[in-house]
Design a protein around this nucleic acid. Structure first.
Lengths: 121, 121
DNA sequence: TAATCACATGAACAGTTATTCATATGTTCA
DNA sequence: TGAACATATGAATAACTGTTCATGTGATTA
């Protein structure tokens, strides 16, 4: 049944109530889809994609990444924080340096699927 | 060899030149990584994720989606345009209605990989 | 111990984006 | 033909985001 308390913001009439109800009952909870979007938001930035791609190739320190990407150390550091929070990279400290590396098995395959999509243009 | 013309904005010294050079030579071209980020940017919004998830379940018209998501028809329509531009959904017209449906084989598997990641928290 | 280096971080700013509102287009039907 | 409906779209606005700048922290070394 359509929950009419929930459709207050919608300015349409319900055309296919059966479809809406079926789809609604099969949808993952909002929170889950929100988390999913949050994850993809992390991938939705060229700098972060480059960093992830680089770290999949080799462990690198912040300075190396800054040189590679031709960006300030600060900008790279800010983005690494985002990647860290999303549990996509890990790091180890060695003296003054901090070495970042890849920390996820799924990301590469997500990227590969993404590349398949944009290749079919 | 490090291209010193390219590191003007970096305030670091090159620490591991060999690593930087190797990684740089293996990186896909900037344009490709940019396109990849643009694709993920599309997935980086809860509304669009919900729409894609719904359309994977069933073809739906704009009003149905608006009801399902408890959003205005206008908001949904704007997002459908984004999805259309990214070639993630297709549509067919039938009278006054426009029916949207899924148009990509990779997206679902991208989503599934994403769910794997957020499930491991 | 003082200087230097690698890195982190808060504040600020500019650019982007999602939604809303108003309105336009095109179809159906009385 | 005119009213009603489904959808699209441009403009405006509020919220968000990525980079820069200035500065702080902690480790090294002269």
């Amino acid at each position: 049944m359509v929950d009419y308390d929930d459709i207050s913001r919608c300015d349409c009439t319900v055309i296919h109530e059966d479809v809406v109800n079926r789809v609604k009952s099969n949808m993952p909870p909002d929170e889950r889809l929100y988390d999913l979007a949050e994850l993809f938001k992390v991938f939705g930035d060229t700098t972060r994609v480059k960093i992830l791609w680089a770290l999949d190739e080799s462990e690198m320190c912040v300075c190396d990444l800054a040189v590679l990407l031709n960006m300030t150390q600060s900008a790279v550091s800010h983005q690494l924080r985002v990647l860290k929070q999303a549990r996509l990279v890990k790091f180890r400290k060695d003296g003054k340096n901090v070495y970042y590396s890849f920390d996820d098995d799924h990301v590469k395959s997500i990227f590969e699927q993404g590349l398949l999509h944009i290749s079919e243009g």
